Simulated assay, not measured.
Amino acid sequence: MSESPRRRQLLDAAQAVIADGGLKGLTHRAVDRRAGLPEGSCSAYLRTRHALQAALAEHVSGQLLADVDELADRLLHSDEPHGFDAALGLLLRWLDQRDLLVARLELTMAATRDPGLAQVLATHRARLVTIVEGIMTTLGKEHGAARAEALVASYDGLLLTALLKPEDERTAFLAESLQLLGSTMAGAPVT
């Protein structure tokens, strides 16, 4: 779904609110303040807290999916044999977008208690797994939905761990971890 500029401004502000204060701090007023808009602006677009959370889950997941789609397209049209550098670059770029990652983590935890939110995130995750499976096919690796889903879950864990590390250790940690994943999870080349 295409977002209007105002709705995007509100959702970007909501993402920052969550990153700063957690999901408990996500209120319509906090979003209005963060966006620099008059009180009532957020509720005019997203009437309830649940609507705000669901829209934010779509917004955050959509950004991540767009990045992975772009990575898949780039790998399809490149001669990079295993995609290591491209994957590392994407994960490092996401680490620089702390608000995006923290909002995603907060929404994921909330989804464990909210079936509606869980459905929004599950739909996006299924699309992500499909893209990763396609990347594995493009790179000539063993693939399958279960292998791709395990790889996506592994990347989630790597991102969370890297987010908790000092900035100067993140690149080395991710590079080493991706090498290990590449040799164990991604599967051998298909011959």
Rank of each mutant, 00 (worst) to 15 (best):
Q97L: 10
A110S: 12
T138L: 13
S78V: 08
D79P: 00
S177P: 04
T130A: 15
R170E: 06
H82Y: 10
R113V: 04
A72P: 05
V31C: 03
L46M: 11
D12I: 01
M185G: 13
A150N: 09
A150I: 08
H77C: 06
D168T: 09
A54C: 12
A51W: 01
G140V: 08
L88E: 14
D168W: 08
A110E: 07
A103W: 00
A55C: 07
Q119R: 13
R104D: 06
A111G: 04
A146S: 11
R113D: 03
S41T: 15
L56C: 05
K141Q: 13
T48L: 08
A188D: 11
R170C: 05
E176D: 15
A175K: 15
G25Y: 05
I135G: 01
L65P: 01
R127S: 12
T184R: 07
L26T: 04
L37W: 00
M109K: 13
T138K: 03
A51I: 00
K24F: 09
M1G: 13
H124K: 01
L159V: 02
G25Q: 08
P5M: 08
A188N: 10
A72D: 07
A186I: 04
A30D: 09
G62V: 03
S154Y: 14
A145G: 03
Q119A: 15
A19L: 05
T130Y: 02
G187W: 02
A66S: 14
A66M: 06
L180H: 08
A148L: 09
V60T: 04
S154D: 07
L10V: 10
S41H: 11
V132S: 01
V120S: 07
E39M: 07
T161L: 12
V60N: 02
D99V: 02
V120Q: 07
A86V: 02
D12R: 14
L46D: 04
L151H: 10
F173Q: 01
T161H: 05
L164A: 15
L160Y: 02
M1K: 03
S2L: 10
A148V: 04
V190R: 15
L91R: 05
A66T: 13
L23N: 03
K141R: 15
R7N: 06
K24I: 11
A145Y: 07
E80W: 00
M109W: 05
G22K: 06
Q9T: 15
R7D: 10
A57S: 12
L139A: 07
A103S: 15
L64Y: 00
A87M: 14
E133G: 11
L101V: 04
R125K: 12
P166D: 14
G116I: 02
W94S: 01
D79N: 11
L101M: 12
A146W: 02
L151M: 11
L26A: 09
L76K: 13
E167W: 12
V152L: 01
D96P: 01
K141V: 01
G25N: 07
G21N: 07
L158M: 15
D12G: 10
A118E: 06
A57R: 03
A30M: 08
G62A: 08
G182N: 12
K24Y: 04
S78I: 09
